[in-house]
């Protein structure tokens, strides 16, 4: 009986080691693909859906430069960009090796079979508490990511791939994040009291979840991006 128990424990340890090896290998494949991109400049359309913010759809340029520089710029107007948006570049989620990777099973997202990997940072002072990524093994790309942070709550990323799958760059990113409530004193705004104001007051208790959609139309990959853009 004792021998069987020892063997079972040994077997389980071996299995978990093999799973960890698989998870690390899969993550490395994703990382290798993303590492093909040193920088890019992309044209995109940004749709903002934040309950207190009514803004037009914006044509933006997205700039990225290794290791972790990202900028969303609207040259023709104003765009409100969420502070955690730097994570829309997946490199910023899986860069470095300072985390433990755990294979958490498989699931299907929109007909795409994915492997769930949980990334636990080894640095106790890291702002990220846990990242969960859903990897399409066939194309070695991340389909979905959920990151929980100490300061900015949890944010979700959902990616659709098309023309630029070979570089691990998505055609569409949906970024879901938490916002704080917005309220201004009426004595400052001197609002015009039309019926819409009262209606909106009632509608505004929606909770603080917000969504940004970025639809990329084209990427210029590895053509060089000046550091000035990120200032």
């Amino acid at each position: 009986m004792k021998k069987i128990s020892v063997l079972a424990i040994f077997f389980l340890l071996q299995m978990s080691y093999v799973f960890a090896q698989d998870a690390n290998a899969l993550l490395q494949r994703v990382r290798d693909k993303l590492n093909l991109v040193n920088n890019y400049e992309a044209d995109a359309v940004m749709k903002t859906d934040i309950y207190f913010l009514k803004v037009p759809q914006a044509n933006v340029k997205v700039y990225f430069k290794k290791p972790d520089k990202l900028k969303i710029r609207n040259d023709k107007g104003i765009s409100f960009v969420p502070k955690g948006a730097v994570s829309i570049n997946l490199n910023n989620i899986i860069a470095g090796n300072k985390f433990t990777v755990i294979n958490a099973g498989n699931t299907t997202i929109g007909n795409i079979p994915t492997t769930i990997l949980k990334l636990l940072p080894e640095d106790e002072n890291s702002n990220v508490i846990l990242s969960t990524i859903y990897v399409d093994e066939k194309n070695s790309v991340i389909i979905k990511a959920k990151t929980t942070t100490k300061d900015n709550g949890t944010y979700d990323l959902e990616m659709n791939y098309g023309k630029y799958t070979e570089y691990g760059l998505p055609d569409k990113v949906v970024f879901i994040f938490n916002t704080k409530d917005y309220k201004m004193p009426k004595g400052v705004t001197f609002d015009y009291d039309d019926a819409e104001v009262k209606k909106n007051n009632d509608d505004n208790n929606k909770g603080g979840q917000a969504k940004i959609e970025i639809m990329y139309s084209s990427y210029k990959i590895n053509k060089g991006v000046s550091d000035e853009i990120f200032k």
Partner: peptide, 17 residues
Amino acid sequence: TNDLVVAKEFELLQIEK
């Protein structure tokens, strides 16, 4: 000139230039 941002009590509105 640029887009106009109007701050209301419960909303922020952005109007294109």
